[in-house]
């Protein structure tokens, strides 16, 4: 074989090998990128379900306030009173918040919280391990010149298959304040 022809063959082979390496790198990147995307759909579904569970928890907390506004104000006043002991604070706070937590174990007296009923229904209808709860339910009072405005701040959470979403809602409440 002439030296010129051998050099040409060698050049063609090196070009081909380079081309193959580029192709294989591209294939590898595409393959691993596709594999990484596979779990994304399930996570998106679970996150949406968790968000809706949190929304149900907010709805429950706001509805309880709508039904028992005077009692909520009494509890809230007590929680912020300087003379209240820690035991009293814990008791009244827990008594209000018990409806929003849903432990699976039976509670004393066979008490089944509304949150537990909701969780069971959600799990039955969707087949997913949905959970929800309310972390905080407090009154926020804004005082500006000429008016006093009250808001109910609810901080709730929902979870599904390990995906957890927290939702915080500020609801304006109508209260007539004394002078």
């Amino acid at each position: 074989m002439k030296p010129f022809a051998a050099a040409r063959h060698g050049f063609a082979l090196v070009t081909l090998l380079l081309f193959m390496m580029v192709l294989l790198t591209f294939v590898g990147l595409l393959h691993f990128s596709s594999r990484g995307q596979k779990g994304v759909h399930t996570r998106l579904f679970d996150q949406t379900k968790a968000l809706m569970a949190a929304r149900a928890a907010v709805e429950l907390a706001v509805y309880k306030y709508r039904m028992l506004p005077a009692e909520f104000y009494k509890v809230n006043r007590l929680l912020h009173a300087p003379m209240t002991s820690t035991a009293e604070r814990d008791f009244f706070s827990a008594a209000w918040m018990n409806d929003f937590s849903g432990p699976s174990a039976a509670m004393p007296g066979g008490f089944v919280s509304p949150a537990r009923v909701i969780i069971d229904e959600m799990r039955r209808e969707t087949g997913d391990p949905i959970d929800l709860g309310v972390d905080g339910c407090e009154l926020v009072t804004r005082k500006e010149s000429g008016y006093v405005k009250d808001f109910l701040r609810v901080k709730a959470w929902g979870s599904c298959n390990g995906e957890r979403k927290t939702l915080e809602q500020l609801v304006e409440v109508e209260v007539t304040h004394g002078p």
Binding site: E59, R66, G127, I130
Partner: peptide, 11 residues
């Protein structure tokens, strides 16, 4: 298929 569920109270 996707099933989404939540609750609503009468406010």
């Amino acid at each position: 298929e996707m099933r989404l569920i939540t609750c609503r109270g009468d406010m």
